[in-house]
Design a protein around this nucleic acid. Structure first.
Lengths: 190, 190
DNA sequence: GTGATTTTTCTAGCACCGCTAGGAACAAGA
DNA sequence: TCTTGTTCCTAGCGGTGCTAGAAAAATCAC
């Protein structure tokens, strides 16, 4: 019995190791540098062990995404709680969102851009993801008015996502990002 | 003299052939199916000829993107001109934008999502791209108020882009898309 | 402790990718 | 018809994700 437990513990440890290696590699060199070979080398195992933990590279990315989402949720929460009133909270959460995307692009991409099969807008969505969305939702609540709160939050999220992604891959001038966000929030909350 | 001209004409023709093949393949099977080998087979030349026309696969995608952008610009323009007043025009253009992204996902991705080095927010940006942006700009103009028209247009664009991309890759429930767009436009124009 | 069995892990390789060097085939001019 | 210059293809490089089957290690039975 105990030996089975030890084995499972070791397996879980190694799984963590893989996820961390993937995240580190992605954050330093970008996702295109995250290959199964490099990953295997990092964790000091051969390639096939990765496939005993994850179905494939996509699943590894998904795992990294879920973890990263917890970080995002925490940052959003901190920003929201530190703010004085509803106006500041909305601005703070938008700022935290942008900041996360800028500081941790690889993580942001894994969560929101890369094609990776995570359940999103369903009850089966990872808790961290729901938590992050929940933070946005609370910031939006004061502005809901007659609109559906969930849909309105999704709209805010989409707006931020669009602003951030188009800016980050060079389709919108970076220097005006803050002003665009300000305009967006102003209209959103008006 | 004439022989040189014929050669250049043939070259241009073949270049068109490559771009069309890439677009078709991308639109039917997705960009991941567009490989230099398959492309070469389609145009009935060997792989290396592609590289005598384009610097690499990215450049081919960029060429497809520019072409596709002309289509988008035309559709946006048609939608805008067919609309009665400013309110209808904004709704129509948002609808046309969404519709383009849904009907021609591969094209949309090449233009707005894939990492492809096109000059965007500069004077050197392809004319088609500027034309598409210009259509958005005209639709936004009546709503500018005290805001900078360019920035405001970028914000609208970002919002639509976010809504469309998150919906299209399964991160937002598809069925509520129209309602989200409506909410967004309502707040945007309020 | 020793042999059999089960589990884990690695070696080697598949089919594919983008891209390119170097030689063969072709077309143009003498 | 022969030479020259251009065009184009064959073959191959180093890489990718992923997997079958052998080797090694750990566990169990005696």
């Amino acid at each position: 019995m105990s030996i089975q437990a030890r084995r499972e513990r070791e397996r879980a440890e190694r799984e963590r190791l893989i996820i961390e290696a993937a995240r580190e590699l992605a954050e330093t060199d970008g996702w295109e540098a995250v290959t199964t070979r490099r990953l295997a080398e990092r964790v000091e195992y051969s390639q096939p062990v990765l496939y005993s933990h994850f179905k494939g590279k996509d699943a590894i990315m998904a795992a990294v995404a879920v973890e990263g989402c917890a970080d995002l949720a925490a940052e959003l929460r901190a920003a929201r709680l530190a703010a004085g009133g509803p106006v500041e909270a909305l601005a703070a959460i938008a700022d935290a969102y942008s900041s996360f995307a800028e500081r941790r692009p690889a993580l942001y991409d894994a969560i929101f851009s890369q094609r990776v099969d995570l359940p999103f807008a369903t009850p089966e969505a990872p808790a961290a993801l729901q938590a992050a969305f929940g933070e946005l939702l609370e910031a939006v609540r004061p502005y809901a008015g007659d609109d559906d709160l969930g849909l309105l939050t999704e709209t805010l999220w989409s707006g931020l996502h669009g602003l951030v992604t188009l800016m980050r891959d060079g389709r919108l001038p970076r220097e005006a990002h803050a002003r665009r966000v300000a305009i967006f929030l102003d209209r959103f909350a008006r």
